[in-house]
Amino acid sequence: MMTLKVNGREHQVGADPDTPLLYVLRDDLKLNAAKFGCGLGQCGSCAVIVDGKAVLSCITPMVLLEGKQVTTLEGLGSVSEPAPIQRAFIEEQAAQCGYCIPGMMMRAQALLLKNSKPTDAEIRAALEQHLCRCGTHMRILRAVRRAARLMETTDASSTANRSAQ
């Protein structure tokens, strides 16, 4: 048994220490956001935040997480109280199938935590190891820029309908 801190709560987890975090999150803690995409650290779908940095949970064994703070997309906000990054992705309608999006959002959140005003090049560089197959890239970039703006302002305006373009 080891103690795993996820989204501010401590969990006693019985998984072997070599088990990658992804399976503990999905199987033991019943969290959906981190996705299995490749299991090889090649696509980014499984990204979560550990101690403020984005890591790929499919190749992060439990042994590395003793005493660390894991944050998943569920820990940022909810449908009723979305975090700025979630609001930004909803407002930009930045998803098609959406499978890669949670990983993208965690990477973006980690970037914005250390750099509140990233340039476009910095956003692209941060997302470079994340793959999207639907071609939602333009919206993802817009959503990250919007999240940066939202995080700056305290104004929490609602997720109103976007008007037609």
Binding site: K30, L31, N32, A33, K35, F36, T72, L73, E74, G77, S78, V79, P82, Q86, F89, I90, Q93, A95, G98, Y99, I101, P102, M105, T159, N161, R162, S163, A164, Q165
Partner: peptide, 25 residues
């Protein structure tokens, strides 16, 4: 019709809701 109504599936997808067959338990 003709309005850009936000998609109904996106909120769950960006908050860790159960959105996919992969998420079934």
């Amino acid at each position: 019709m003709g309005q850009s109504v936000p998609r109904v599936d996106i909120p769950a997808k960006v908050t860790g809701g159960a959105a996919y067959v992969q998420d079934m338990r």
